[in-house]
Amino acid sequence: MSYCVNCGVELQKSEPRCPLCGTEVINPNEIAEEKPVRPYPSHVEHLDRSVDRRYIASFISLLLLIPLFTTMLANILVSGGLTWSYLVLGGELVVFTVFLLPMIARMPKVLYAAIDAVAVGVLLLLIRVLTQSEWDWLLLLGLPITGLATLMCWFFSAMASPKCRLPVLVRFTFALACVGLFVVAIEFFIGLYMHAIFWPTWSLYVLFPCLVLASSLLLLNRRARVKEEIKKRFYF
């Protein structure tokens, strides 16, 4: 019988080394003995690898090429050149960056949002070029609202992240205020586009309730007793 010099436990003869610390067992008196039966067989039952999302996403990306090529081919055959099929390209680019890219490549969340914004920008640009419309809707409406929406997505993800140290109610306060301001900004850009910047009107219907709700949440957050009450009442 052998003992682990490190742990002080007796080791079953079948153990080649101490399972607790990995120290090898060499008992000079018992070397010649035949190999004892191990308590478990050597065959390991392997788990199937969990679904390889990266593989599936890459596969779907390849599938996306089928409608793209089909429309391009149809476009060439019908109009003798590539025209409207660029829209399909732009659309698929947005689908790819929003849904598939996060599964294929790992990068910081900010970068995903930035790439998605660029893809939407490209799609809008393509629409502008192909429809040969005015620049102003793109510059005054499309791109600014895309940019703002991106910023808001980033802000929401930061608020929802488990690393966020703020109390939950404060996070909701910020999120609500953010939604209200976003709507005001949309009205501002619409005004800009219509060449008439005036005092916000309809967006105030969204802004005020949001701000009122947000401030009441902030107040609630300051009252430990009320907070406790909410926790209690909403406990399930």
Binding site: V9, L11, Q12, P16, P19, L20, S42
Partner: peptide, 19 residues
């Protein structure tokens, strides 16, 4: 297990470790 040994209870171990 080392705690039990220190408490005065001899322990004999085996495992399914792969050699």
């Amino acid at each position: 297990f080392t705690r039990l040994v220190k408490l005065g209870i001899p322990v004999k171990v085996e495992s399914n470790q792969q050699s």
